[in-house]
Design a protein around this nucleic acid. Sequence first.
DNA 1: CGAACATTTCGATGCGCGTCGAAATCAAGC
DNA 2: GCTTGATTTCGACGCGCATCGAAATGTTCG
Lengths: 241, 241
Amino acid sequence: MRIRAHSDPDLAALAALIGDPSRAAILVALMDGRALPAGDLARRAGISPQTASAHLDRLFRGNLLAVEVQGRHHYYRLHDERVARLVEAMATIAPAPPVRTPAQRDAARTLRFARTCYGHLAGALGVALTGAIRERGYLNEADAGFIVTAAGDRWFRDFGIDLDALRGQRRPLARRCLDWSERRHHLAGALGVAIASRCFDNGWIARVRDSRAVRLTDRGREAMRREFSLKIDNLSISSPN
Amino acid sequence: MRIRAHSDPDLAALAALIGDPSRAAILVALMDGRALPAGDLARRAGISPQTASAHLDRLFRGNLLAVEVQGRHHYYRLHDERVARLVEAMATIAPAPPVRTPAQRDAARTLRFARTCYGHLAGALGVALTGAIRERGYLNEADAGFIVTAAGDRWFRDFGIDLDALRGQRRPLARRCLDWSERRHHLAGALGVAIASRCFDNGWIARVRDSRAVRLTDRGREAMRREFSLKIDNLSISSPN
DNA sequence: CGAACATTTCGATGCGCGTCGAAATCAAGC
DNA sequence: GCTTGATTTCGACGCGCATCGAAATGTTCG
C-alpha cells in the first residue's frame, strides 16, 4: 500500500521538468527575460531543433514558458517572473559545475560580477548598486519588496526614470530578487529594469556576447564612483562604509 | 558545437534530484523539520527499503539531506532550512495534483488550513497568526525577515517564550517563509518554531496522524479569538480589519 | 507558384535509472 | 551466540524518455 501525500502540490513533476540538462539550459538562456526563437534556443542548449521543439513544448505545457508566434518564428520566454525567481532560488543551492578550463574560470567570474536577470542587474554589481541606493535612503524595505521614498522619488526622476509610467504597469514596481552568486537581495521589478536600461543607455554597462553577463565600461566605472561612491577595481567592489 | 553556460550553477543536477516522485515524497515527508528513520521514509514514499536507501544516499550526497546514525536506525532530515525554503518555493509554482477522491479533497483542505513547515506553523492559520502578530506591532519587516519590537519583546515573554535563549541559537530568530498555499509570507525561524511549540503545549493545535497537517482544537479556536482576535469557523479565518 | 527557412511531427534507437528480489552488514536483545 | 530487525549492497529487469533522421507543416520572399 502506498501512502503518499496526495494533497501536496506535484513537486516531482515540476522538478523533473527543470531537471533535464537541455531544458535547464533553455531556462537559463531565458533568465534575462528576453524572448528567443526556438532555433536560437536549440543552438544555445546544444541540441537539434527537433529535440528543442519537444522540450519547449513540455516547458510550455508545464507553464514555465510562454510563446509568442511571429510569422515563422516562435519566440519563447519565461512564463512568469516567478519562474525566474525559482530558477534563481535553485541556483543558490545548486552545486557549482566543475571548472575545467581557464576560459571557464573567467566566464564564471565575469558572470558573478555582473549579469542581467529578467531585465534587471544582478551579481556583485547589482547587489552593490542596490546597497548604495538603500544607503542613500532612496528605498525602504517592505513586505514584498522595496518602497520608493520621497527622496528616492526625486532622485529616480532626475536619473531619467518615469516613475508614473512604471507605477501604471501591472508588474510590481520594486521587488527583491535573491542573487545566487552573492546570496543577497538585489533590486528587481519595473524599477530594477528601468535602472538597468538607463545604465545601458548611458553606456555604463554593455552586454557580453552570447551570455547573460554584462561588463562595466570605463565610463560606467567612473559613473559608479561619481553617482554611488562605489569604488570598483577590475572585478572587485568596495563601498565607503 | 555545444554552447553551454558552463559558468552557471548546475541547475539540472539539483532539479533532477528532486524530480523523482519517490525522492520528492521523501523531501515532503521531512518538510516539518523532523528526522525520520529510513524505513519510515520508505513506507511514506510507498517504496521498498532498498529503493529508499538508494534515494536517501543520492539526496545525502546532493547535500539535500543530513543523516544521523543511532544504533541500527538511520535518521534522515533536511540538510538545511534553505532546502525547506526551496521546496516551499517550488510548491508555490508546482501544479496541484489531480484530485480523485473526496477523501483527498478533505486532506488537501486540511493541509491548506494549517500544517507544520520546518517546525513552524504554515497554511492559512500560520499566515493569519503572523498577520495578527504584525497588526499588533510585535514584529516589523526587515531585510532578511522580521524584527521583534519592544512591545513584541514583552508580549513574547509573557507568552512563555525565552527570547534570550532563542537569540543565542545559530539559526535566525525571525525569518520569512513563503507559504505555497496562501502565497504570502508567514513567520519562520527560531521564534516561529517556539510559537508553534507553545501552541502545541497549550493544546491549541494537534498533529494529524501521518501528515504534516495540524488541526485547531476547540481550546485553540477560543484562544485564537481571545489572544489574536481571529475568528475561525471550521476552516475559514477572518480577522477584524 | 516555387525556393528557402523555421518549426513541428513521426518513428526508431539507445541509454539511464527507478525498481525489486536476494543476500550481506550491522546493531540490539534475550 | 543466535535471532530479530534495520539498513545497505549487488544484480537484473524493464520502462521512460532524450535524442536524432526523415518528412510534414507553415511562412516569407521573389
